[in-house]
Amino acid sequence: MIDWTRVAELRGEIGAEDFDEVAELFLMEVEDTLSQLNDAVNDAPQMQELMHFLKGSALNLGFADLSDMCSKGEENAANEQINVDIASLKNLYAQSRALFETEYAQRFAA
C-alpha cells in the first residue's frame, strides 16, 4: 500500500523537517481534490485532471495503491469513461493515510 522506499528517498532528498511539511501539504491537497470528485462525475476532462493530480501526488509520497487506482481513473476519463468508484478511492486514501501516519514514526524515528 505504501512504497516505503519512495518515502525514504524523498525524505533523504529534502530532509526530515521539509519532508514533514511536504507530507502535510500533500495530505491537505489530496483531501481538497478528493472533495471535488463528486462534481466531476459528468465531466471527463475535469475527472481526468483530478485523477492526474491525485496520481502524481500519491506517487510522490509513496501511496502506491492509491496512485495505481488514480492512474486507471485518469486513463478511463481520457477515454470518456467516467467510472471512478469515488467511495472506494476515498476509502483507499483513508487506509493509506492511516497506515502512513502509524508506520512513518516507527520507520523513521530519530
Rank of each mutant, 00 (worst) to 15 (best):
V84Y: 08
L92T: 04
T102I: 13
N83H: 04
R97H: 02
A16R: 12
T102M: 08
E24V: 15
Q106F: 15
A77Q: 09
A110Q: 08
E31A: 14
A94I: 03
D65G: 03
L34R: 14
A87V: 03
V22R: 13
G73I: 02
A87N: 05
I86M: 00
L59D: 14
F53S: 09
Y104F: 10
N38H: 04
E13M: 06
D85S: 02
E80P: 10
A105I: 14
S67H: 00
L34M: 05
A40V: 05
M28Q: 09
L50R: 14
A8F: 10
A40G: 10
Q95I: 05
A16E: 11
E101K: 15
S88E: 12
A98H: 02
L89E: 01
S57A: 11
S96T: 10
F108E: 08
N38M: 13
G12V: 04
V41F: 03
K90F: 01
A109K: 07
L25F: 04
E74H: 03
A105E: 07
M1W: 01
A64E: 04
I86S: 10
D65Y: 00
D85W: 02
S96E: 03
E103S: 14
L61S: 04
N60C: 09
F53N: 11
L25S: 07
L61F: 15
Y104D: 09
R97K: 11
S67T: 05
V84R: 02
D65N: 04
K55A: 07
R6L: 14
S71E: 05
V22N: 04
Q46D: 06
E9M: 15
E13H: 10
S71M: 06
S88K: 15
A87F: 08
L10G: 14
F108Y: 05
M69R: 02
P45D: 11
V41T: 08
A87M: 01
L59C: 13
M1H: 07
S96W: 01
M69E: 07
D68F: 03
Y93S: 05
K55N: 12
M51V: 12
I86F: 01
K55Y: 12
L50Q: 10
L34K: 04
S71G: 14
A16C: 10
E13K: 04
E101T: 11
Q106K: 11
L37Q: 01
S88F: 00
V84Q: 01
L27P: 10
E9C: 13
T33S: 15
P45R: 08
A94Q: 09
N38G: 13
G15R: 11
G15N: 07
E21I: 06
K55C: 12
A109Y: 05
M47E: 03
M47R: 00
